[in-house]
Write a protein that binds this DNA or RNA. Structure first.
Length: 497
RNA sequence: GGGCCCGUAGGUUAGCUUGGUCUAUACUUGACGGCUGGGGGCCGUCAGACUCCGGUUCAAAUCCGGACGGGCCCA
């Protein structure tokens, strides 16, 4: 593409990802970072619409799988936290000592959690007797009400979710969508009659993840996190990571199996058919605005963003060309827009009084997947010129626009899927021995079945972090990279965000 | 947790070392008018900034201290 020395409105090349990413989120008008609080960006209309398009996919998955939407308060009184703290410190001690949590007696221990939350200690002029904090996640709030909602086995499973803002006082460097202090957060919380039913829920969650990720053309690595990276209070954690262009992995979603650990802490019980009192088994499934960060990072190029059609805030932009020359142009443009809107496409007509070239740049930066140009010549020929953001132009007939556009968007979607899968595949290498050179920007698959101290050796010597066990093991036993003993366990190593 | 850098219009920036000539530079953006119009058009007119507080000084965008904000690197 011709670059008339104009440096593309200041977009750094994507090969310099650490400069490209923060620049593009502002240039494409997703966020405004000028709000004077660290890690709290302002969502601009275009960015917010993109997030809402992702949310809307999430909502329909929740609907499909029978989850019900709830909305819990932002503020949580401090005293509710005590139960959670006791649980977390108990589990932590059990892990440290390598014993089952039920063998330990509870003991008072301060969880490090308080440092990461925002506190409300005053209301008006009054100092609050019981301070409140802004939710960093909603277990505490929800599980205070669950015992009141669940009494009988017929109340189960309870499948709830909410999409809300959560808060975390980050002291590290912040990055739009990736590490922020106010987080746009999705959380599903479920309660079941037993461990097996909760496990089934985890399977359903993973199916939802896979459907969502395929809509967004995001290849993912699904890992069972090692114990030391398991969410506090969870029996196990399954995390979903995306490989960003610089080779760092970004955790975009996670599912936690809580067994009955939280239920015991919060007294969430039901009576079964036999009239016996049982503890519930619970799960959670979380995602965040990091999904948008991943979409931006993975699909964008030197010219700007590229949105996968299912979540593009604007799927087709229609550009009237040389409108003044013939009144037939704006008639054709209006009717094209109407027919596409009627079948549910998100359409924008750009009739600003600007040169067409400038409009093209604008919408390319913003990642609109398909552009339709309609000018006097096209009207005469009965065509619109369709330009794909992923490259290539085709005329499509005006009298069958809907099929033509659907076809074009399909091409774009599969092109994005192909590109991102290619990237993911070229990033992942097998690590055969600890002497092998670690290349920056690569992630590694490894046979590993060692102890915690072996894991430390592995992480120290590679400078990478263990993501955890893959969902499918090796079919043939392989020698563990540290201990040498034969194993089918397959794990990934990466630099994480 | 440890270390480093930075703060001038909406954006990018010159000026700061060696205080005065700053009534602060340029590009871009925005408004208005005209010519234009199939890949960043041209001309004209206009608008817009020294983060805040304190200190030094006859004099501070410039030097010193602090606050706030932004960014980077290493545990």
């Amino acid at each position: 593409m011709a670059d008339h020395g104009k440096a593309k409105r200041g977009i750094p090349p994507k090969s310099d990802f650490n400069a490209w990413y923060p620049a593009i989120v502002e240039i494409a008008e997703l966020v405004d970072k000028r709000y004077p609080i660290k890690g709290m960006d302002v969502w601009r209309p275009y960015g917010w619409k993109a997030m809402r398009c992702i949310d809307s996919l999430t909502h329909s998955e929740m609907e499909r799988t029978g989850h019900e939407e709830v909305r819990f308060p932002l503020l949580i009184p401090e005293d509710l936290l005590e139960k959670e703290n006791r649980l977390v410190s108990l589990l932590k001690r059990a892990r440290d000592e390598g014993v089952d949590p039920s063998e330990l007696r509870e003991q008072q221990e301060e969880a490090g959690f308080k440092k990461e939350v925002y506190w409300v200690r005053q209301a008006g002029e009054t100092d609050l007797d019981v301070p409140m904090f802004l939710r960093p996640t909603s277990e505490t709030a929800m599980y205070t009400l669950f015992p009141l909602w669940i009494r009988s086995h017929v109340d189960l499973p309870l499948k709830t979710y909410q999409i809300v803002n959560t808060f975390r006082y980050e002291t590290k460097q912040t990055r739009s969508f990736i590490r922020v202090r106010e987080i746009h957060f999705f959380e599903a919380h479920t309660a079941h009659v037993d461990e097996e039913c909760a496990t089934q829920q985890i399977h359903e969650d993973l199916e939802i993840v896979s459907r969502l990720m395929s809509n967004m053309s995001l290849p993912v690595i699904v890992s069972k996190r090692p114990v030391w990276d398991t969410f506090p209070g969870a029996w196990y954690t399954i995390a979903i990571d995306v490989i960003m262009p610089n080779g760092r992995t970004l955790q975009v979603a996670s599912c936690h199996h809580y067994k009955d650990q939280w239920a015991k802490a919060f007294d969430i019980k039901y009576q079964n058919e036999a009239g016996e009192t049982q503890y519930c088994h619970q799960t959670t499934y979380g995602m965040s605005e990091r999904l948008l960060g991943a979409v931006v990072g993975i699909h964008g190029d030197d010219n700007g963003l590229i949105f996968p059609p299912p979540i593009a805030p604007i799927q087709v932009v229609i550009i009237p060309v040389a409108q003044h020359k013939s009144p037939s142009v704006s008639i054709a443009v209006e009717s094209a827009a109407e027919s596409l809107r009627n079948v549910g496409y998100r359409i924008k007509i750009d009739d600003r009084d600007l040169r067409p070239g400038q409009k093209y740049w604008d919408w390319e930066i913003k990642g609109v997947p398909l552009r339709l140009e309609i000018g006097p010549r096209d009207v005469e020929n009965g065509n619109a010129l369709a330009a794909r953001r992923t490259g290539g132009k085709d005329p499509i007939p005006l009298d069958n626009l809907v099929d033509g556009v659907r076809n074009q968007l399909d091409i774009i979607h599969s092109e994005l899927t192909k590109r991102s899968n290619n990237h993911a595949n070229t990033c992942v290498n097998r690590l055969e021995s600890l002497d092998q050179e670690i290349i920056d920007g690569q992630i590694y698959e490894v046979a590993f079945d060692g102890s915690d101290s072996d894991a430390e050796v592995l992480e120290k010597s590679t400078g990478l972090t263990i993501l955890g066990d893959t969902m499918t093991e090796y079919s043939e036993p392989q020698p563990c990279i540290v201990s040498g003993k034969m194993t089918t366990r397959c794990q990934h190593l990466a630099r994480m965000y």
